[in-house]
Simulated scan of single mutants.
Amino acid sequence: MKACLLSSIHPCFDVRIFQKEARSLSEAGYEVTLIAVADFQEEVVEGVRIIGLPKPRRRVLRALNWWRILRLALREGADIYHFHDPDLILPALLIKVLTHRPIVYDVHENYPEDIQTKEWIPSVLRGVLSPAFGLFEDSVVRLMDGVVVVNQHLAERFQGRSRVVIVRNYSRLKPFLDTQTPVESQKPYFVYAGRISDDRGIYECLQALESLPDNPAALLCAGTIGHVTNEEFRGLLDGRFHPSFEYLGLLPYEAIPPLFKGALAGLLCFQPTPNNLLGTPNKLFEYMSAGIPVIASDFPFLREVIEEAQCGILVQPDDVNQIASAMATLLSDPEQAAQMGEKGQRAARDKYNWQVEEVKLLSLYQELLAGSDMTPKDEGS
C-alpha cells in the first residue's frame, strides 16, 4: 500500500510528520512518500521517500507550493493521502475528487485560535479571519475520510463531522534511552528546543536566569526562529555574545537527545495565548523521555501530566521571579532534580510514548483502506 504525506509549511524532517508518522508507516510495511519543504530534490531516509519543495521566501508565495504538491501527489498514485496544513485543505479535496482515494487531515493546532496570535496578520483582520476560518474548517472537515488530532480539545471540536482519532504528540523513546553521552558544557545549563518566538517565553527564561546570583548556569536554545520583537533577544539569536545564552541553530533530530540528557531541566514557559493554553507540546514528552525535570507553564494539560508524573515545577510563565525560583530550586537540590527526571522517564516508558500512539494511526489507515464506515470515534481515551 502506498501512503503519501503532504506539507507545504513544515520542514521534511518535522518530528511529528517524519520521525513519528512517516517512519511508523514505513516500519509497518507501507510504501511512504513525503512531499514537504527540503533543501534537496529527492532522497530516501529511514525508508521514507522524500520529495523536496522549495521554501517560499514570502508567505504570499506559499500558493506556488500548493500546486506543486497537487501535481506531485497526483503523480504518486497513492492509496491514501495524509495532509498536515490547513492551507492544503482545498488541494487535498481536489486530490480526493480526482483520485477517489481516502484523505486524512492531520490537525496539529486549533487554527482559528492560532490566527488570533499571528502578528503578521493586521489585528483588524484577525477578528474576522479567525471565526471565518473556523466555520470553513468545520464545514469542509465533513468531506475528509479521517481527521487526526493531537488532543481531546480538538477531538471534541470535530466530533460528529468525520472519523476522528486522537494521536498524541508523545515521543519516540528509543533515541533518548539509547543516548549515553551528554553534550559537554563548561557549566550547567537549562535547555529549550523548538520554535523560538515571543509566545514561547524564552526571553522570560533568560531574564530569570540572569537574575540568579553568581551566573550559575547557561541557557542553550535550539530551533527555528519565529516572531521575536525584543531587539536585545533578537541580537542574541543573530550571534551577539552573552555569557549565559547560546543559540545553537536548528539541530538535526539525532543531536537532540544528547543535548537534553546533559541539561539541568527542560524549559516550557509558553505564554498564555489561547492556542498555548490548550496545546500539547511534544517537547514536554521529549524532556521526560530524556530523564530531565521540566519547568513548565501552569496550564491545564501541562499541570495534569507534570503533577501526575511528579516530574517538574509549574510556574506562571509571565512571572520571571517564579521561573527564577524554579531554576534556583533545581540548581540547589540536584537530588530532587534527578528524582523528578527519573519519575518523568518512568512515566514516558509506561504511558507517554509514541509506541502507544502509532497503533491508533495504523488502525485508522487500515479502516480507511478497507472501506470501513466513518463513524467518529475517540481512540485517545
Rank of each mutant, 00 (worst) to 15 (best):
A193S: 14
G194D: 04
G194K: 01
G194N: 07
R195M: 06
R195S: 11
I196K: 06
I196L: 05
S197G: 09
S197R: 04
S197F: 00
D198L: 06
D198K: 11
R200N: 09
I202N: 06
Y203A: 13
Y203C: 10
E204W: 12
E204I: 08
C205P: 07
C205Q: 09
C205S: 15
C205N: 11
C205E: 07
L206Y: 12
L206G: 11
Q207N: 14
Q207Y: 12
L209Q: 00
L209K: 07
L212C: 12
P213W: 01
P213K: 00
P213T: 01
D214G: 12
D214L: 12
N215I: 07
A217S: 08
A217R: 05
A218G: 14
A218I: 04
A218W: 09
L219Q: 02
L220I: 07
L220T: 06
C221P: 02
C221A: 03
A222D: 08
A222N: 00
G223H: 05
G223T: 07
G223M: 10
T224Q: 13
T224I: 08
T224M: 13
G226M: 00
H227T: 12
H227N: 14
H227C: 09
H227R: 13
V228Q: 08
V228R: 09
T229D: 15
T229K: 15
T229S: 15
N230A: 06
N230K: 04
N230D: 14
N230H: 12
E231C: 01
E231M: 04
E231G: 00
E231Y: 02
E232P: 01
E232Y: 14
E232S: 11
F233T: 02
F233S: 01
F233L: 05
G235D: 03
L236S: 03
L236K: 06
L237E: 07
L237A: 08
L237D: 04
L237C: 09
D238Q: 15
D238N: 15
G239F: 05
R240L: 06
F241K: 12
F241Y: 14
H242K: 05
H242D: 02
P243M: 09
P243K: 10
P243H: 10
S244E: 10
S244V: 01
E246M: 10
E246H: 11
E246K: 15
E246W: 05
E246V: 07
Y247A: 07
L248F: 13
L248P: 13
L248C: 12
G249L: 07
G249I: 02
L251I: 06
L251H: 09
P252Y: 03
Y253C: 02
Y253D: 12
E254C: 08
A255L: 05
A255T: 00
I256A: 01
